[in-house]
């Protein structure tokens, strides 16, 4: 069964459906959270929170607005970003981080390669963006910086960063060709 149908069953309190859903989404959720949060123990914690939240609030899922996977990953991303920002705020109070950002081509691949093909495709497409598009998108999405912070780090005006983000995502879409 697909994640969409499962999530609808989960909303009705179906624990068996949740077990199946876990099999489908725990990998993507964990991978994303770990990419953003970095710290393994905290990543596990956030992943568990997200999966439990998916169980609790499954009734809010509206199949008319997108897939179950997007719904859960959007939730996961928001929680991961919240976590990394509050951790960062704590660190920043003590030591102001350097403003440097070095941008090798996008190559931060973690060890377990699960979604091999998709990962390779996304990596290749990210590398086709201009450096500023790629940095704007990845600093925000994978590193959890706000667009103001991104602008500051890249020494760019706010408007430019917003445009780079939009252009970057749109170009990524064309490169990925909409194949799910």
């Amino acid at each position: 069964m697909e994640a969409d149908e499962l999530l609808v069953l989960v909303a009705g309190g179906d624990q068996k459906a949740f077990e199946q859903l876990y099999g489908l989404v725990s990998g993507p959720v964990f991978g994303l959270v770990r990419r953003v949060v970095r710290d393994p123990a905290q990543s596990e914690e956030v992943t568990q929170e997200v999966l439990l939240e998916a169980w609790r609030s499954a009734a809010r899922f509206d199949p008319g607005r997108g897939s179950a996977l997007s719904w859960i990953l959007t939730l996961a991303h928001r929680r991961a970003v919240d976590r990394v920002r509050s951790a960062r705020a704590a660190v920043d109070r003590e030591q102001r981080e350097g403003r440097r950002y070095h941008d090798p081509a996008f190559d931060q691949v973690s060890e377990e390669v699960e979604a091999g093909l998709e990962r390779e495709l996304v990596r290749r497409c990210l590398n086709r963006l201009t450096a500023l598009q790629r940095q704007s998108v990845t600093l925000a999405y994978y590193d959890g910086y706000t667009y103001r912070e991104v602008a500051e780090r890249l020494s760019l005006p706010l408007g430019t960063v917003k445009t780079r983000m939009r252009d970057g995502l749109t170009r990524l879409r064309h490169c990925l060709g909409g194949a799910a």
Binding site: S26, G27, G31, Q48, T74, Y142
Partner: peptide, 26 residues
């Protein structure tokens, strides 16, 4: 549309969680 693009970024990072997590979550 942009959120769907972002989800592609998310999906590409998939990695298996520790096995023990499953029991804890369930």
């Amino acid at each position: 549309a942009l959120s769907e693009d972002a989800v592609r970024l998310a999906w590409s990072q998939a990695a298996p969680p520790p096995a023990a997590m499953r029991e804890r979550v369930l």
